[in-house]
Computed example of a mutant assay.
Amino acid sequence: MKWSLFLSILYDIHQFNEYFIQTYDATGALELFGVQKMTVALRILQYSVPVDAVDKYIRIGETIAIVALNFFTKMIVAIYEGRALSTTYTINNHAYTMGYYLTDGIYPRWAMIVKTISQPQGLKRQLFARMHEACQKDVERSLEVLQVHFNIVRVLTRGWSDKDLYYIMKMCIIFHNMIIEDVRNIPENECSATLLQTDTTNTLCQMSCDPNQEYEEFMLNC
């Protein structure tokens, strides 16, 4: 991930939620800043490291790491999630307005599930089975790509609730698309990164106006 995309996301999160903005605690000491919280969330997602293993590297305790991950995934979904296009199609003279899932024969016979034909007879059925299996392969390849970039999708996730997994999976899909767009040199990321570097509207505490220097100092002191 480019540094400009990292700053762009951090800037957008700052506008949406104050959790990632550095503040003072009850004793007057500075709390953790957004770079630390976002870094720990990305390390857990990309490398699937245990939450208690990031304390030494990022200097964040286990409880705060879990909270930062939950906030991060929910913020990404809330800020960047788009809406699916309306779906309208006709099968056997019957109009449908909802999408469906392509599966194989092991799934139940539900209305939103379309299975392939195991032993197609005739040209029409053979064409349907071939196109169905081709589209299903594309979906499987997409999941493999996510597993490469986000190891948390690959490993066992017994420690996470269904709600957490919902946001984690959506966040991984959105984040993957954002990285692809950034590789294609989408200019909006550079704009948001510039805004974050020059933003001085935070009145909760006195923050560094140069996130690059702040990040370098943080990495050097780890």
Rank of each mutant, 00 (worst) to 15 (best):
R83S: 10
Q46C: 06
Y57I: 13
M75A: 01
N17I: 06
A78T: 11
T39G: 01
I21N: 06
L69S: 03
P50S: 06
I21A: 09
R43M: 07
G61N: 04
I91C: 12
L32F: 10
A65C: 13
E18Y: 09
I13F: 07
F72C: 09
Y47A: 03
V40C: 02
K37R: 12
R59H: 11
T63E: 05
N70K: 04
I44L: 02
S86R: 03
V67F: 02
L45C: 04
Y24N: 07
T90V: 10
E31F: 04
L32K: 03
I44D: 01
F71I: 06
D55R: 11
V35P: 05
I21S: 01
E31L: 10
K56Q: 07
L30I: 06
V40T: 08
I21L: 11
I64L: 08
E18Q: 06
H14G: 02
L69T: 14
K74P: 01
E62R: 15
I21Y: 05
Y47E: 13
D25R: 08
Y24P: 03
L42K: 08
A26P: 01
G34Q: 03
F33C: 14
A41I: 08
G61L: 09
Y57P: 12
K74L: 01
S86K: 12
T73Y: 02
T23E: 15
Y24D: 03
Y57G: 04
A68F: 00
E62I: 07
T73N: 10
R83G: 08
F33E: 13
V51W: 02
V35E: 11
T73A: 07
G61P: 02
A29E: 13
T73K: 07
G34A: 08
A41G: 10
Q36P: 14
D25V: 11
I91P: 11
T87M: 13
T39K: 04
H94A: 06
D25P: 06
A65K: 06
V67I: 14
M75W: 00
Y89I: 12
T23Y: 01
F71H: 09
I21V: 10
R43C: 05
N93H: 11
M75P: 00
Q36K: 15
Y80P: 08
T88L: 09
T88W: 10
T39I: 11
E62D: 07
F33Y: 11
F71K: 12
T73C: 12
I21Q: 00
Q46S: 14
F20G: 09
I60S: 09
T27R: 14
M75G: 07
F72M: 15
E31N: 05
E62M: 03
F16Y: 13
K74E: 08
I64Q: 05
V51R: 00
K56V: 15
E18S: 12
K56E: 14
I60K: 03
A53F: 06
K37T: 14
I91T: 01
A41M: 04
F72H: 12
Y47I: 06
M38G: 05
R59N: 15
P50A: 10
L42Y: 10
L30A: 12
S86H: 07
I79Y: 01
G34L: 08
F72S: 07
G82P: 01
T63N: 11
K37C: 08
G61F: 00
Q15E: 09
N17S: 15
L45R: 06
A29H: 03
I91S: 00
T27A: 08
A41K: 05
F16P: 01
T63D: 14
L32C: 05
